[in-house]
Design a protein around this nucleic acid. Sequence first.
DNA 1: GTCTATACGATGATAGAC
DNA 2: GTCTATCATCGTATAGAC
Lengths: 211, 211
Amino acid sequence: MEPKETKNRILDAAEHLFAEKGYHGTSLRMITTEATVNLAAVNYHFGSKESLIEAVIERRLLPLNQLRTKQLKAVRDEARRNDRAPDVRQTLAAFIEPTLSFRNSGPGAQDFIALVARALADPNDTARSVFINRIKPVLDLLHQCLAEALPQIDPQTIFWRLHFMIGSLTHIMHNLDKLPIPTEMMPTDNSFQEITEMLLTFITTGMEAPQ
Amino acid sequence: MEPKETKNRILDAAEHLFAEKGYHGTSLRMITTEATVNLAAVNYHFGSKESLIEAVIERRLLPLNQLRTKQLKAVRDEARRNDRAPDVRQTLAAFIEPTLSFRNSGPGAQDFIALVARALADPNDTARSVFINRIKPVLDLLHQCLAEALPQIDPQTIFWRLHFMIGSLTHIMHNLDKLPIPTEMMPTDNSFQEITEMLLTFITTGMEAPQ
DNA sequence: GTCTATACGATGATAGAC
DNA sequence: GTCTATCATCGTATAGAC
């Protein structure tokens, strides 16, 4: 078996199981069984269970953050070229849309989101600090763009509203297909796109609220 | 030892450890050691580990939901008596403020919030379904109040905005003292109250946004 | 009724031979 | 890279002391 093949099979299985059962709820045996590799292969390729979850997170997060950064800079630079402030909704969309299209890129991506949601809820998890450290530069850039877009609002207020936004985003991404949703509350079709628009309206309006 | 004393010691220790290490990360032996009771006391008083976490959740959640329900009904009935629509900010405050004052009621309450955040992130956790089932009636009441307050907005849209709000609320409650917050972003004093006001402004404005 | 000491079967982690 | 023997720890059950 090619070496890359083994590593990826382990990463896929780990992503899936960590998402479903949590870090402590998943054993190395479960992972290696699902990946149909030998138990000791994890220690061989990744060193430890803890390094494995770090690798799982970085594999997805690095390209995602690159895309977010690229889109944010595009919005900011376009506004600067035209000598005006960036549009708030456009700025927020530049951050949010990569997250959402990523979510629809496959079942592994949804597992990853569940994994991140877990990591954020875990006060001691190593996954938590990996995630937070990696996303901080993107958040700083987003904050800077919003400060340009909303000069009338205190940067401190923008900072907190940004965290309210992150709460809404992660909550809805993680719970969209897990919530007990009455049928009459479900948008008719292409529901995901509609809910995305609703979210964007909600947070854009909240972000622009007078102090 | 008084019988209630033992049960409460177990509940306190379980709340603390489940919040810190998660359900699977906590063993009954850790709990009974921290509570300085015998290992078998858990099974005697609660039957199983799973029943124990249910008891942990219900102990806090029932009074909290009663308070929320009472305040929501007060706002609604007051508005009806005066033959006008309920105020949106007041309605949201009736739901949110008990949560926040509860959070400040002691260290055990903060553990409980961390526990709930964990439960919400866990797709399979029994704690999750206990929490969701218990809070559903309150959410239904809140939805009904908001529909009265915002007749111009589609109930379906209100429903989703309500979930965006819950995301913001749980995220900020859980992460308030865990986020890496630059000192210049921290409100000068009584920060918790200020952040609450900011949250209320954010979600009220978002909730009232034109469709 | 309440608590304790102890045991059981299952399962996970790990080190060392190959 | 793989296999296996070994050990720790888990949740739970039970018998009996107070």
